[in-house]
Write a protein that binds this DNA or RNA. Structure first.
Lengths: 126, 126
DNA sequence: CTTTATGGATTACAGATGTAATCACTAGGG
DNA sequence: CCCTAGTGATTACATCTGTAATCCATAAAG
């Protein structure tokens, strides 16, 4: 399982959104992070080593693309997080989160719909 | 904000469940981890340093107790996890998780009820 | 052709983490 | 009174992480 650190994850988010893109573009996109250019290069290299990114040469620069889909990574990460903190149960997480944060009406509506869908699927399994 | 690493978290889980307890008891409880006794002592010490645990002397041994409630830690951790991976939105996490794991009927029922409660609270705010 | 800017590769270095080993103290067994 | 076992304290050490700096190659500028 590919482990991506916090700083690296910011790079991945950028590349998931804008891929394929060059280091210069990543640096451009992540200006708000106030990271040194060298720092971003290092993180890109580490992500290559980890097999999270791939690249193609284009002239002297590299063009980066993700090797792992954002969706797949989110699944992997949320699964292990919930296992680690909530003994693998989803509802306590939702409860915990919603005790602290107001869930927007939109988000709540989407959640309701999702729950309905899951219920439906559950019934179909009978 | 107290940062607790994965290995340390296993210690905390044990102490959250059994506190107050001695190092020997923690070691006993965590046999399945196959950790060396010394490893557990080290982790206990680090948790003390971080302010996650406190202790009282009882004879020559220490009695450990958590300084942070499990609930509080779960909130803090899930909040930052959801911010980091799902741009702070809860529903995508639920969706992601449920695509991979079957949510038990019980869990789903609890979730539905929770959603209903949140909706109610939302309305009351009008 | 020489200098300079730009991009990747390598090296740096402190702090966190996983995983222990060694040190030091004290109470109990012989 | 001396040795041993259990307990906390200190030290160890490789790897990962955050955050860069330095090195090296090359294309563009002069």
């Amino acid at each position: 399982m590919i482990e991506i650190s916090d700083a690296e994850l910011s790079i991945m988010h950028c590349i998931w959104q804008h891929h394929p893109c060059t280091a210069a573009q990543v640096i451009e996109q992540l200006q708000h992070k106030a990271w040194h250019e060298k720092t971003i290069k290092t993180l890109l290299n580490r992500l290559i080593s980890k097999g999270a990114l791939s690249y193609q040469k284009q002239g002297k620069a590299y063009i980066y693309s993700p090797c792992i889909e954002q969706h797949a990574y989110q699944q992997q990460a949320s699964s292990s997080f919930i296992k680690k903190l909530f003994a693998g149960r989803l509802t306590p997480l939702v409860a915990s989160f919603s005790q602290q944060h107001t869930v927007s009406a939109d988000d709540l509506a989407a959640l309701k719909q999702l729950v309905a869908k899951l219920e439906q699927e559950g019934k179909n399994h009978d």
